[in-house]
Design a protein around this nucleic acid. Structure first.
Length: 349
DNA sequence: AAGTCGGGGCA
DNA sequence: TGCCCAGACTT
């Protein structure tokens, strides 16, 4: 089977079996494609759809996004994770308007914007502009690594170079948009990680992995190390009105820019911190069941401590770094998922 | 080249 | 339970 028919077979398959009704496919303008691509980084389609619809309702255009505040953007991002994506999206919207008056339609200008790399830029060009651009996301990597038998973990530059060369070599001069979509659909629905549906695959005829019966050997997994464990004590200080004290986290790092609970390194430190924050420590602490939260690179054990403080009537008062937040009210911005569950949970304060 | 950055889906 | 996912950025 000739190699140059790869894209033809993929396209023919997509026309029959591919996805064409996702929210960002209905009106695939550059802005909508961009937002969807950022949300879809490290996040699955089913999870993204609800976030995308809410985001588009609030920020339907690039101009509206640029005019919004970072807190609003982070609030809409709460629960999606990788919050640097949201901060970069917001910054890039303002930069794009400033530099180009729109989302620029060329690869170099796109990749110069924060949060847009080579693959996302290629997606915008192919899907929204119909240009013969190339994407290389997790799905495409998996399809190509199996079909061509590309050894090695794709996290290394050498393997990435090989995969990019393959990806670009197979991108057709026309129909690059449908082809990009088709490759992602192929990886997401057929050439899946655990049990690929090779019987229905349009490129099974010359697939190295299928021929050798080693589909799940590619792509090679990331070398794993054991996860470090960390502990933190989160303070749920609430006043007479039931408001809880939230603090804004530093602009970068874990949960950057999000509103979270004050944290201490232990129970003794919690007492000291409470005095520093509200001038007195609670008459007594109540420890809730610990929460385990796993990040990419460490595991966090959260020990929640509830304490009532008879402070001044400060509920609702917000400044740049702290706010007394009443659960059920509109949030002051984005919040980490475990904090949301602590404030909403039946076991909460 | 290695580390950082969340949360959820799924076997 | 562990692995991975429509990656990009920092050091």
């Amino acid at each position: 089977m000739p190699a140059n028919s790869f894209s033809r077979r993929v396209l023919a398959w997509w026309r029959r079996h591919g996805r064409k009704d996702l929210p960002w496919q209905r009106r695939p303008d550059p802005y909508r494609v961009w937002v969807s691509e950022i949300m879809l980084q490290q996040t699955q389609v089913g999870t993204v759809i609800g976030y995308f619809d809410r985001f588009m309702e609030r920020f339907p255009t690039l101009e509206r996004l640029a005019a919004g505040s970072e807190d609003e953007v982070l609030e809409l991002w709460t629960g999606l994770g990788y919050y640097a994506r949201a901060r970069n999206l917001h910054r890039a919207a303002r930069l794009a308007l400033e530099r180009h008056g729109c989302l620029p339609p060329d690869l170099d200008a796109l990749t110069a914007l924060p949060g847009i790399g080579r693959s996302t830029a290629g997606a915008i060009l192919a899907l929204a502009h119909g240009e013969p651009a190339t994407i290389l996301d997790g799905n495409v990597k998996r399809v190509l690594a199996r079909h061509a038998g590309v050894d090695g973990w794709p996290g290394t530059p050498a393997v990435m170079r090989r995969l990019w060369a393959l990806a670009e070599g197979r991108t057709p001069p026309r129909q690059a948009g449908p082809y990009a979509q088709a490759m992602m659909d192929l990886g997401a629905t057929l050439c899946t990680r655990a049990s690929p549906g090779c019987a229905a695959c349009p490129v099974a005829g010359d697939c190295v992995a299928l021929r050798e019966g080693r589909q799940t050997d590619w792509p090679a997994p990331k070398p794993r190390k054991s996860l470090p464990e960390r502990q933190t004590w989160m303070l749920l200080l609430h006043d007479d009105q039931g408001a809880v004290l939230l603090q804004r986290r530093p602009p970068s790092g874990v949960w950057g820019g999000l509103w979270s609970l004050p944290e201490a390194a232990g129970t003794a430190e919690a007492d000291t911190l409470a005095r520093a924050l509200v001038g007195r420590s609670p008459t007594q602490w109540r420890a809730l069941e610990p929460i385990r939260h796993t990040f990419t690179h460490f595991r966090l054990h959260i020990h929640p401590l509830v304490g009532r403080v008879h402070g001044p009537a400060t509920a609702g008062v917000k400044d740049a770094v702290q706010v007394w937040y009443k659960p059920g009210q509109p949030p002051p911005g984005g919040m980490p998922a475990p904090v949301v569950s602590l404030l909403d949970g039946p076991d909460g304060p």
